[in-house]
Amino acid sequence: MATGGRRGAAAAPLLVAVAALLLGAAGHLYPGEVCPGMDIRNNLTRLHELENCSVIEGHLQILLMFKTRPEDFRDLSFPKLIMITDYLLLFRVYGLESLKDLFPNLTVIRGSRLFFNYALVIFEMVHLKELGLYNLMNITRGSVRIEKNNELCYLATIDWSRILDSVEDNYIVLNKDDNEECGDICPGTAKGKTNCPATVINGQFVERCWTHSHCQKVCPTICKSHGCTAEGLCCHSECLGNCSQPDDPTKCVACRNFYLDGRCVETCPPPYYHFQDWRCVNFSFCQDLHHKCKNSRRQGCHQYVIHNNKCIPECPSGYTMNSSNLLCTPCLGPCPKVCHLLEGEKTIDSVTSAQELRGCTVINGSLIINIRGGNNLAAELEANLGLIEEISGYLKIRRSYALVSLSFFRKLRLIRGETLEIGNYSFYALDNQNLRQLWDWSKHNLTITQGKLFFHYNPKLCLSEIHKMEEVSGTKGRQERNDIALKTNGDQASCENELLKFSYIRTSFDKI
């Protein structure tokens, strides 16, 4: 039985969820670079991206490699990797027998973001014989899940209580170790020597080791999670996991709180800001991140802002960003909400898709409305799209047979046209069989910064309504002859009103 693990408890099935942008060198404390989270699957090609990484700022997932063999891993080693800020997950990587050479110096898994409450997941690794993470000293947050690894031993010899604050939620089941077939031998045991430290858990006094050649490092209890030197002297209180010299914040392997210019500090002093819960960055760093993602459509890219001495992905609820200094300031009234469309555009074809934009005031991208039916549609669209004030790209209304009016965009005031449909149009209306009105132009103002209007096959939309939009939106004169079809717009509506004058002759039985 794995020490510190839980057996036999019912657990939810383990679901495996399925960018080499360097964020800056980590400095003297770390020998390499800070790398983003990685999802490495199918083959070993991307694994080489770990070569210079000291910190993975995010998670590391290595999974679904069915053609790899043990010899493929023999020359692979990433000794610079010290810390993973989120979680480490391995799933069905064939041929991998140990992690001792792959990650010989991995010391800390912070667990800032977890995989279903777990910071370390080893699942269905069919050839893994031992973990071998002999320098792993601290899992700051989260638990361990090690399950269905039929060859995995050296679990009962690990004292997880020396690595985690609590072992109650560890789930370590259905491994070879369960069948008591392992016969784990710690260093020196074969020669009758006791080389590794022994600890007591559940009444068992057991030597602690990761492999037959690597003991588990056990520091004096007084050192807590700070770690200790090879001689057993406690590291500085700002260290986490390990250090090369005692009581020196510049000799830590990793930091308990924050890293700044080669030393570990309790908090980031001005003019620095907390970033990702582990390091200090200056304003320029946060500003660069903001600008890199301002026009990016890459998933996970955030326009970072500053709030409460932190550089964070977005302002919290009730705050909006001051564009001059990136500071989050309290909103006066309802907060603006910028919604970034991942692929640059979004099609609204149902109430469900409209709900995804609920509360958005600025759309960074283009909207395509293609709704053919739905219950209580006008009210639903207004509830979900009615706060949109600005669209950076274009607005396209296409084959939306259920629409009679666009009044559900009740606050839309600006279409920038930074991206144009077919390279020309910022407003595009095609084949809307029941569209009769755009907006009530006596109450609604709309500016279209650039781009043209396109109207074709809107049989109940009168040309007068379209011409009014040209005047109000500032697009009059931009359109070419064929942009607004004269014969297919309003051709099934009563669009022309003329005053009919009647004269009559009164007659009676005795007068003409």
Score class of each variant (00 low, 15 high):
F115N: 02
P246I: 05
Y87S: 01
Q204R: 08
T229G: 07
C234P: 03
F275P: 01
Y171F: 12
Q287N: 06
C196G: 02
D159L: 02
C280S: 00
P316M: 07
Y171V: 08
D184Y: 06
G111N: 00
W210T: 03
H302N: 13
C35N: 00
C228S: 03
F283R: 14
I185E: 03
M137S: 07
Y94D: 07
P104G: 01
Y94F: 11
F285D: 06
L76M: 13
T107K: 10
N195I: 13
F115R: 07
N117H: 06
N309P: 03
N295R: 12
C268W: 00
G300S: 09
Q299P: 10
L131M: 13
L44Q: 04
L99G: 02
I84Q: 00
R141F: 09
D178H: 08
D72G: 15
T199E: 05
Y171A: 15
C252N: 00
L96I: 09
N175I: 12
F123I: 14
V144T: 03
G262F: 12
V121G: 07
N43W: 05
N175L: 05
N195K: 10
I158Y: 04
H236T: 04
V218S: 09
K224I: 09
H226M: 14
S237N: 10
R110Y: 04
L50V: 10
L44K: 05
I163P: 01
P104S: 01
H214G: 05
S112M: 12
T320Q: 04
L29H: 06
P249E: 09
V167C: 15
D39A: 09
C315S: 03
P249L: 04
I158Q: 03
S161I: 04
D75L: 10
I185S: 07
S296W: 15
H127K: 04
E314H: 02
D277E: 14
Q303E: 13
Q276E: 10
V253Q: 11
N138A: 12
I62G: 01
M83E: 13
C293L: 04
L81P: 00
D39K: 13
N202H: 12
G183S: 06
L102I: 07
G32V: 09
R41A: 08
P187R: 04
L81H: 00
L60R: 00
L106N: 02
Q303L: 07
I40M: 10
L174F: 11
G227T: 02
K80A: 12
S324T: 08
S143K: 06
L152M: 15
F115G: 00
V200W: 06
I56L: 12
I62A: 01
T329G: 14
F275L: 06
R113W: 11
Q276R: 10
G111D: 00
N149V: 02
N43F: 06
V55R: 01
F78E: 01
L120E: 00
H302T: 12
C331N: 14
H302Y: 12
T189R: 12
L128Y: 00
T157F: 04
F205W: 14
P197L: 05
P79T: 05
S296R: 08
I62T: 00
G333K: 09
H307L: 09
G318Q: 08
E314Q: 07
P316I: 11
E97D: 09
D247N: 02
C293P: 02
P70F: 05
I185V: 13
D159P: 09
P271C: 06
T199L: 13
G111A: 04
N105E: 12
I158S: 03
S237W: 12
L89K: 01
T107W: 02
Q287W: 11
E33Y: 00
Q299E: 02
P316H: 03
A190F: 07
P249H: 06
C328V: 03
Q216T: 04
C223S: 03
Y94L: 15
N257T: 10
R110T: 09
N309M: 12
G318V: 03
D165G: 12
R92H: 05
G241E: 03
C335Q: 03
G111R: 00
D159V: 03
I139V: 08
L96V: 10
N308F: 08
D184N: 13
C153I: 01
V200I: 13
E49S: 15
G188D: 06
Y273P: 05
E57M: 00
C268P: 00
P336K: 15
E97P: 04
V281K: 04
T199M: 07
I62L: 09
L332N: 14
P336A: 04
I109M: 02
L106P: 01
L99S: 01
L60D: 01
K191Q: 04
C219T: 01
E57K: 04
R69F: 12
D184M: 15
S296D: 14
R110E: 14
A198S: 10
R69C: 10
N179K: 15
V305F: 11
I146D: 01
I306D: 12
V144S: 04
G241C: 02
D261G: 04
S296K: 12
L50D: 00
E71W: 05
R297P: 10
A156H: 08
D277P: 03
C234G: 01
R41I: 15
G95A: 11
E57C: 05
V218N: 09
L47E: 01
S213R: 12
P220Q: 05
D247A: 08
R141M: 06
N149F: 02
L99H: 00
G37T: 11
Y319F: 08
F103K: 00
V108M: 13
P316K: 09
P36H: 03
R297F: 03
L63G: 08
M125K: 00
P270Y: 15
T329P: 02
P79S: 06
E130V: 06
D261E: 03
L76V: 13
P271V: 03
C335V: 04
S54L: 10
L63S: 08
N43Y: 08
L240M: 03
S77G: 13
L29R: 15
N309K: 09
G241V: 04
P270N: 15
S213I: 11
K100F: 09
T107R: 02
T267I: 01
L102F: 14
H48P: 13
P271W: 15
W160E: 00
L47P: 02
Q216G: 02
M65H: 13
K80E: 06
G300D: 14
I163E: 01
I201A: 07
I158A: 05
N282T: 14
C301D: 05
L233N: 14
C35W: 00
G188I: 14
N195Y: 07
R141C: 02
E151C: 07
F258M: 06
T157G: 07
H236S: 13
G95H: 13
M321S: 15
H236E: 14
N325P: 11
L29W: 12
E71N: 15
R263D: 13
F78S: 02
D159M: 07
V34G: 04
N150P: 12
I172H: 05
P270Q: 09
C35M: 00
H290Q: 13
Q287K: 11
D261H: 13
H127N: 04
L90V: 09
L60C: 04
F116W: 09
V121A: 09
C215T: 08
E33W: 14
F205H: 10
C209F: 02
Y273A: 10
L63H: 02
G262Q: 03
M137F: 12
K193Q: 04
M65E: 10
I122Y: 00
K310H: 07
G37C: 01
T211V: 04
R256F: 11
G37S: 07
T189Y: 09
F205N: 13
D184V: 05
I139H: 01
I122V: 08
Q216R: 04
Y259H: 10
I109W: 00
D159R: 07
L174R: 06
V305K: 12
Y273F: 07
Q287P: 08
D248L: 06
